[in-house]
Design a protein around this nucleic acid. Structure first.
Length: 654
RNA sequence: GCCGCAGUAGCUCAGCUGGUAGAGCAACGCAUUCGUAAUGCGUGGGUCGGGGGUUCAAGUCCCUCCUGCGGCACCA
């Protein structure tokens, strides 16, 4: 007897071994048709694999996230089968499901071309039509190695040889094709459906190691239904329109050119945006009791040798030399400079925590292939700061930092942030007890700030654990922006010390931290996140006053002057064009507010306001317009400040 | 840095198997004074990414370098 418990708690009894498919049929033909796999005691199983003991079983369909993952994984297998049919001699390696799709890495001497993708996709559809049964087989390890070696599949043989002893070696057979795979899989290739598409071709190193051979990776996307596929492709097209490189050009924010690879030419509007964000950050840091400093950009090699950068970071540093042969380097980070300031004079425990901020211009010679618009540049400015504190202050400082970060992100429109917690790596400096303390402090503080985090095991810096705050760009790529790193090493190397309560000298701990990360990257993300429709307080051009006919030119000029006096960034459009044309153009340029003035407005001293994205207008008296827009354009931190000041403190009550 | 793809006017792109560059938008000029997402007509604009080669002839074919794009590796 086998007793099967279903998710709703009901129980079914079977005389002998039973498969997920049997159970599904038992429940109903609809489910039998929809079921793709099942979970047996929370472990994913093939639908046809016999269950021999009492278990809790849940059936998985394409509506489940797990079902979609199965579809994607099968798509990878079907693609591999198609590739091996079309291009004999190609070796298969690995092919997992990923977010939105799948890939498979192949080893083949000839490169695949975009035309090949079409052929492969067509063959995949044939394989789906063949509806080959997919069956699971457990093999003997040596037999499996011999089998794949015999086929010339060196990579597969290597994978099997590296599997931990005791792990069952499962081979999945679909038609005449076999692949080593942990599974599970769909019952047959027909179940995959045809809502898939091969999307891109790329190189990828075997086992992700640049010292290994480079394989050819084919990416695809796969979905349960054609509609889902269509929606996804549409979403990608839409996302492309908000690419910050495109919007940067269209909106006249910045440009890049080959003579200064990886460095940004900020145009007036872009630089206004940049400065607005920087002013905001500066106010936030000041309010959080940071002090701001500025340290040299070009620094003698000897300092970098002492800090350890010369040994660890040399490849990424730009260097220059003087006539007397001194070797200098452009700073890639601000930290050594900050320690130099800390070291001036004697510091007491009373000076700690000392929060030292700098919007310092840094340069790193990033690998050519790593450059990417504003997201990965060679010249950048961080909202950088180093907190010199005692070990006992790590918790409170981290907590304060997480709170500040959360508040800043919220102000800038990011409600949820992915937080990665990277703990001790194998090779590290510092005693285990110190690491225990630092890791516990980081965790506690992150949770106290209400941030959800995931563990990134062993990925911490050699000098301490770190938090990474990751934001996502328009097409789903993740970029690390904020960070907090606990550092026990640099104060030691650069000999930072303070006098404690006990009168003895002690080493401070350094917390390296940034919220935005770099202004460049953050602005790239911000442009994509807002699709260029910045909130009024950030918009580099807030209002355009557009005239209907030249009769209103003088009044328009008065309105612009009044707006500017009220602190708004306003421009005037008195061109001899129709109002339709002007509205269209400024809307396309994503100007948040268009103030239309014609004869009527000039006579009544009013303004017809049109908001970006809205189709309606509201006619307001000029005075009201000024007050309304002034309020709306107030940066969020100042809004809070004036609210705290209470009624009468300032105009605005949030 | 590695693999693949691409580079034609400010932008988006066309230019078949080699015969000497084209459209739309933008810009500029003229006309139009108009009530909320494109007024009409006209004009100018290109060493076809750089260099080399093949050819009577190269945007088109070959080599090479540069840059960009998509991944991979890297991201202290």
């Amino acid at each position: 007897m086998v007793a099967i418990t279903l998710p709703d708690g009901s129980r079914r009894h079977y005389p002998g071994p039973v498969s997920g498919l049997d159970i599904a049929r038992d429940i109903g033909p609809g489910l039998a048709k929809a079921a793709l796999a099942c979970t047996v005691d929370d472990e994913m199983w093939d639908l046809t694999r016999p269950i021999e003991h009492d278990a809790t079983v849940a059936l998985i369909t394409a509506k489940d996230e797990a079902g979609l993952e199965l579809i994607r994984h099968d798509a990878a297998h079907v693609m591999a089968e198609a590739v091996q049919e079309l291009y004999p001699g190609t070796q298969v390696t690995i092919g997992p499901a990923i977010e939105n799709g799948f890939y498979y890495d192949f080893a083949r001497n000839e490169p695949f071309t975009p035309d090949d993708l079409e052929r492969i996709e067509a063959r995949m559809r044939e394989i789906v039509d063949r509806d080959e049964a997919i069956t699971r087989e457990v093999w003997d390890r040596d037999a499996a190695i011999a089998h794949f070696k015999g086929l010339g599949e060196q990579y597969k043989a290597e994978i099997i040889a590296d599997l931990p002893a005791g792990e069952p070696i499962t081979v999945y057979r679909q038609g005449d094709w076999k692949d080593l795979c942990r599974g599970p899989h769909l019952p047959s290739t027909g179940r995959l459906g045809k809502a898939f598409k091969l999307t891109k071709l790329a190189g990828a190193y075997w086992r992700g190691d640049a010292r290994n051979a480079q394989l050819q990776r084919i990416y695809g996307t796969a979905w349960a239904t054609d509609k889902q596929l269509k929606d996804y492709l549409h979403m990608l097209e839409e996302a492309e329109k908000r690419d910050h490189r495109r919007l940067g050009r269209e909106m006249g924010l910045f440009h890049l050119q080959e003579e200064a690879q990886g460095a940004v030419f900020w145009h007036p509007k872009g630089w206004t945006l940049y400065r607005t964000l920087q002013s905001y950050m500066r106010r936030r840091l000041e309010a959080a009791e940071y002090v701001e400093v500025n340290t040299p950009s070009v620094v003698d090699r000897s300092l970098w040798e002492r800090s350890g950068h010369w040994a660890k970071f040399r490849e990424n540093m730009f260097t220059t030399s003087t006539d007397d042969d001194r070797m200098l380097a452009l700073k890639p980070m601000n930290c050594p400079g900050h320690v130099q300031i800390f070291r001036q004079g004697i510091k007491s425990y009373r000076d700690l925590p000392l929060r030292m901020a700098e919007f310092g211009s840094c340069h790193r010679n990033e690998a050519h292939g790593a450059l990417h618009g504003l997201m990965r540049v060679r010249a950048f400015v961080q909202d950088d700061a180093h907190i010199f504190c005692t070990e006992d202050q790590i918790v409170s400082e981290t907590r304060a930092f997480c709170d500040l970060l959360k508040s800043v992100y919220q102000d800038l429109g990011f409600e949820s942030v992915a937080v990665k917690f990277s703990d001790r790596p194998e090779v590290r400096a510092g005693a285990d007890a110190t690491w225990d303390k630092a890791e516990a402090a980081l965790k506690e503080a992150t949770e106290a700030a209400g941030l959800d985090w995931t563990l990134n095991p062993g990925e911490g810096a050699f000098y301490g654990p770190k938090l990474e705050f990751v934001l996502r760009d328009a097409i789903g790529r993740d970029w690390q922006c904020g960070t907090l790193q606990v550092d026990f090493v640099l104060p030691e190397r650069l000999d930072a010390e303070y006098v404690g309560e006990d009168g003895e000298k002690h080493r401070p701990v350094m917390l390296h931290r940034a919220i935005l990360g770099t202004f460049e990257r953050f602005l790239g993300i911000l442009i994509e996140n807002t699709a260029g429709r910045f909130p009024l307080w950030l918009a580099p051009l807030q209002v355009v006053v557009a005239t209907i006919t030249s009769d209103a030119d003088a009044y328009a000029s008065a309105v612009v002057t009044a707006l500017r006096r009220a602190g708004l960034k306003a421009e005037m459009d008195t061109r001899n064009e129709k109002i339709n044309y002007k509205v269209r153009e400024h809307s396309a340029a994503k100007v948040p507010v268009i103030a239309v003035v014609g004869k009527r407005e000039a006579e009544d001293h009013t303004v017809a306001l049109r908001r970006l994205g809205g189709a309606r207008q509201e006619v307001l008296a000029l005075e009201d317009t000024l007050n309304t827009l002034k309020e709306e354009a107030m940066p969020p931190d100042l809004v809070r400040q004036s609210a705290e000041a209470g009624p009468g403190g300032m105009d605005r009550v949030a």
